[in-house]
């Protein structure tokens, strides 16, 4: 498919990106790895008039660990997350989830910030950051602010970012307690039909593709905190979900899957 005509400007730093967004307003879209935006543009489902390409903004790339916090630049690729020995040691859930995104080509180009900002309820990484209780850092013309992951996903493909804000970084706690990511799909490269991420033995639980946004499974977390076993805690996994329907699964089958996968994830995480 052939995308509609679009303007293009490169922004090689976070500040330059903020300035470009300020200049072009809501007709501009940030282009990072392009793994979600470009296909939508080729189908003409997305028609921004200006692309602000932050692909070479190297100040937005990298993983650093300081005490009990892991800071990750928004442009860090899934492949870099997957293969970072530091991240595998400090936050194995996030590194593992990154390894489950798409295929190797997607993981080399796709970025953590791009995945979170796209806010696709079927994406893997939002669930990991939610389960870990992460914090997102947004930078706009007035400076930077922090947004809790639980407040970030506001609707289907919608986030709390303002029009002129750039998601510049993500912070998650060092998390080496029991974890699991149960991704159920038919081909390795696909989005999850349903996914369940569990961090810290069940203290954090999140769901993929069970509603219009990535979801935190608060009822499951509460059940675990209250001492429920994996099966009992998983029984409430459906609470607060609105599962979609597609070729792979109708809502009833998704509800069945999310209970099964939640129990398996909790067991694997030692809950």
């Amino acid at each position: 498919m052939i995308p509609a005509a679009v303007g293009y400007v490169r922004a090689d730093s976070a500040q330059a990106a903020v300035a470009a967004l300020g200049e072009h307003g809501d007709e501009a879209k940030l282009l990072a790895g392009g793994q979600s935006l470009i296909p939508l543009m080729r189908l003409r489902l997305a028609r921004p008039s200006m692309l602000v390409d932050v692909g070479r903004a190297d100040d937005l790339r990298g993983i650093s660990i300081d005490g009990d916090a892991v800071s990750i630049g928004a442009l860090t690729s899934h492949s870099d997350l997957e293969h970072s020995a530091d991240l595998v040691a400090a936050c194995p859930l996030l590194a593992h989830v990154a390894s489950q995104v798409g295929d190797p080509a997607v993981r080399h180009r796709g970025t953590l910030g791009g995945s979170l900002a796209h806010a696709d309820p079927a994406s893997d990484l939002p669930a990991a950051v939610l389960a870990l209780g992460g914090t997102l850092v947004a930078t706009g013309s007035g400076g930077s602010r922090e947004i809790a992951a639980t407040d970030f996903f506001t609707g289907f493909l919608e986030s709390a970012l303002a029009v002129d804000e750039v998601l510049t970084g993500v912070r998650v706690p060092v998390s080496t307690g029991g974890w699991s990511y149960q991704k159920f799909n038919r081909r390795a490269q696909d989005w999850a039909i349903v996914g369940v991420a569990v961090a810290e033995g069940g203290a954090g639980v999140s769901l993929v593709n069970m509603g219009s946004t990535p979801l935190r499974a608060s009822a499951v977390e509460a059940a675990v905190a209250g001492g429920a076993g994996a099966a009992d805690a998983a029984a409430v996994a459906v609470d607060g979900t609105e599962p979609p329907s597609d070729n792979n699964a109708d809502p009833a089958y998704r509800e069945h899957l999310v209970r099964v996968l939640t129990e398996r994830a909790l067991v694997a995480a030692g809950a």
């Binding site: 295929d103 038919r186 081909r187 390795a188 490269q189 696909d190 989005w191 597609d246 070729n247």
Partner: peptide, 23 residues
């Protein structure tokens, strides 16, 4: 996959599941 109106619901390679080497 077609719906009752004759619309193809698997018109791209995300929805039409050609296996990859991984499968």
């Amino acid at each position: 996959v077609y719906d009752e109106d004759g619309q193809c619901r698997s018109a791209n390679l995300a929805d039409y599941l050609v296996p990859s080497a991984a499968e």
